[in-house]
């Protein structure tokens, strides 16, 4: 893009700056749009599974429902409880939303279409997404109210518990790819499964790790069946109980942006990212732009997430902790040993 702006007669610095800003907006604004649409999709999927109609009033097929909701919350009054810590109370949604946006900076949408092609991309995503817990804890604390506080404690414990196994799963992927660069990881999957499938998930050693990652992603984003942080029968609306207006909506937006991020990570780490599914050029797969494949994969995983939410009953908290600490953690540890041992023994690195 920089070249394009340079061709308009700008200096390199100015062109680079404008191109970067444009790139950022090209990520941030469509992302917010995607979040709005994906909320609609989510509701439609649950409705379909529950044999209901779902949103169908605003716009054709109810497509504009999320925008109507957005406009509504935007015009609402922002209530700051008198007992709350006002500064922290307002900072919490800012942190949540900023962090949710920021993680997208290193996601590759195509071979060249990545905003910041840093060599530790995956580590960056892990670091940024683990900052999300601050928004939750701060909101629960600043509300100075019981339900948000309990919910924040639960959420923090849950998120960090599953982050541990996610960390080990990422190590497994990195062991195989040999790099932290997101594009490098995508390219390492070219023809990885049986020589024809462009995905790590079809590797017998990595498949269990993908399952662990998928479930941990659900828990990390507090999606059903791990939505204990806002189990409405116990905790009202969780840590967002005291929030209203756009501050409340920011938690929603952040949450869905994180869900989309987890779907994207599933696609990038285990299903070949922007690569076509098969490494065969029968029909011109490779001529289709990369982002089409990536978006298709993201959408597929989001459908899976919705499907799970609509069908699986909620976990109990002790079951959740047991699954994280007593099943996933030992399992992923064992696979780090197995995979690194296998790669060493087969001379993968020499």
């Amino acid at each position: 893009m920089t070249e394009f702006f340079q061709s308009l007669g700008l200096t390199f610095e100015a062109a680079w700056f404008i191109a970067t800003i444009a790139g950022i907006l090209l990520i941030a604004l469509p992302l917010m749009l995607a979040v709005a649409m994906i909320i609609y999709v989510d509701r439609k999927v649950w409705a379909a599974i529950a044999l209901r109609r779902g949103p169908n009033v605003v716009g054709p097929f109810g497509l504009l429902q999320s925008f109507a909701d957005g406009l509504k919350v935007f015009l609402q009054e922002t209530i700051i409880p008198s007992a709350a810590n006002k500064g922290l109370f307002l900072i919490a949604p800012i942190v949540t939303f900023t962090v949710a946006l920021l993680a997208w900076a290193v996601i590759p949408f195509g071979p060249e279409a990545v905003l910041a092609d840093i060599n530790v991309g995956l580590l960056y995503v892990l670091a940024i997404s683990s900052l999300g817990v601050y928004g939750v804890v701060v909101s629960g604390w600043a509300s100075n109210s019981k339900y948000p506080f309990f919910s924040a404690m639960r959420a923090a414990a849950q998120m960090i518990s599953y982050e541990v196994s996610i960390g080990f799963v990422l190590v497994c992927v990195v062991l195989w790819a040999g790099t932290f660069n997101m594009n490098g990881i995508v390219l390492a999957q070219l023809g990885h499964g049986f020589g024809i499938v462009n995905a790590f998930a079809f590797n017998l050693l990595l498949f269990p790790m993908w399952v662990v990652f998928l479930i941990s992603a659900l828990a990390e984003t507090a999606r059903a069946p791990f939505d204990l942080t806002e189990a409405e029968s116990e905790l009202v609306a969780g840590y967002q109980t005291e929030y209203s207006s756009m501050s409340f909506a920011l938690f929603w937006l952040g949450e869905y942006a994180n869900v989309l991020l987890m779907c994207t990570l599933n696609a990038i780490l285990f299903f070949g990212g922007w690569l076509p599914p098969l490494n065969i050029d029968l029909i011109p797969w490779f001529d289709i732009p990369g982002f089409v494949w990536l978006f298709a994969k993201i959408f597929f995983f989001f459908f899976v997430f919705s499907w799970i939410k609509a069908t699986v009953p909620r976990f109990r908290y002790d079951q959740l902790m047991r699954l994280g600490w007593k099943v996933f953690l030992p399992l992923s540890l064992v696979f780090v040993v197995l995979i690194s041992g296998y790669l060493m023994a087969t001379g993968h690195y020499s």
Partner: peptide, 17 residues
């Protein structure tokens, strides 16, 4: 770009609040 992104994302969230 990440730094710029940080500023823009912060600006957006502050504006939204």
């Amino acid at each position: 770009p990440i730094l710029l992104f940080l500023f823009i994302a912060l600006g957006l969230s502050v504006a939204f609040v």
